[in-house]
């Protein structure tokens, strides 16, 4: 069993957990992920690692409550235990040799983008960050990004915090304004990553995206997380989750992501009903 040693509600639908897992904390690197099961009858879900404390032996994950499984996860508190927690899985983000980068995070993807930005800053790289959310209430990790970024931009769809607009607007300006990035990292919803690539590709700025498809085992066994990269089938769990954004077939990934939408919607409603009963 893996104890939750700290829980924070970052916004109404995003929760942060620090999990006691010394083995994993010792080896984890930015870009890698874990698979967890909250309880014995639960689903295995992948979550990208958003931090780790090698001394304390804890691993941080930040998750958005979107379905039945994450809803159950969100009900757990410090002192509760997760049934299973396995990792670190996947390839670490390649950060070697980069001098100047732009890290673009969208929504809960910012939780994964942060350790990448922090690691690059630590390595002496010039880091520009652009983070975007739907509205003010959903903003997370603003201070953390500010403190590791040489330039920082906060965007919201409705302008209720930072500037109004999408993350690609400042990105386009920065690139057009002559910022010559060695790499742009885009981590967020598929549609955002697709548009980041649309922005960077005409300028030929290398772009790494972090893919988060449906997974089961996370070790290359099921092939459920497959996607098309440069015309070849790749498994996000063992070949990724980072890929060259220019080569990823985002449209296919979006369609595959919708495979169980009906089931998930139904399961989520059931979970909500269940909790409602418990509250009554």
């Amino acid at each position: 069993m893996y104890e939750i040693i700290n829980k924070q509600q970052l916004n109404p639908t995003v929760v942060l957990f620090d999990i006691n897992a010394p083995h994993i904390a010792k080896k984890a690197e930015p870009g890698q992920f874990v698979i967890l099961r909250a309880d014995r009858d639960g689903e295995r879900i992948p979550l990208t690692i958003s931090g780790y404390d090698r001394e304390k032996g804890s691993v941080r994950v930040i998750c958005q409550i979107v379905g039945a499984t994450t809803k159950r996860l969100g009900m757990l508190n410090a002192g509760d235990c997760l049934c299973d927690f396995v990792g670190p899985l996947g390839q670490p983000t390649k950060v070697d040799g980069l001098k100047k980068v732009c890290v673009v995070g969208g929504g809960v993807g910012c939780a994964i983008a942060l350790p990448v930005a922090q690691k690059l800053k630590e390595l002496g790289c010039e880091v520009h960050s652009i983070i975007g959310f739907r509205s003010k209430d959903l903003v997370i990790l603003e201070e953390e990004f500010r403190s590791c970024s040489d330039k920082f931009f906060l965007m919201t769809d409705d302008g209720s915090a930072g500037d109004k607009g999408v993350v690609t607007a400042p990105l386009e300006q920065l690139i057009a304004g002559g910022e010559d990035y060695d790499m742009v990292f885009a981590i967020g919803p598929l549609i955002m990553m697709k548009f980041v690539v649309k922005t960077t590709k005409p300028h030929d700025v290398p772009t790494t995206v972090s893919m988060n498809p449906i997974m089961i085992d996370g070790t290359g066994m099921c092939g459920c997380c497959r996607l098309t990269v440069g015309g070849e089938t790749k498994f996000a769990c063992v070949d990724g989750p980072d890929f060259d954004g220019f080569l990823v077939d985002f449209d296919e990934a979006m369609k595959r992501g919708a495979m169980y939408r009906e089931f998930e919607r139904h399961a989520y409603e059931e979970a909500c009903n269940l909790f409602r009963k418990e509250v009554e």
Partner: peptide, 18 residues
């Protein structure tokens, strides 16, 4: 890679293990 194409591993893992 269409929705509804499984490897046997995925189909059986979902059914048996999960």
């Amino acid at each position: 890679n269409f929705c509804g194409v499984y490897s046997a591993n995925e189909f059986l893992t979902r059914t048996n293990l999960m």
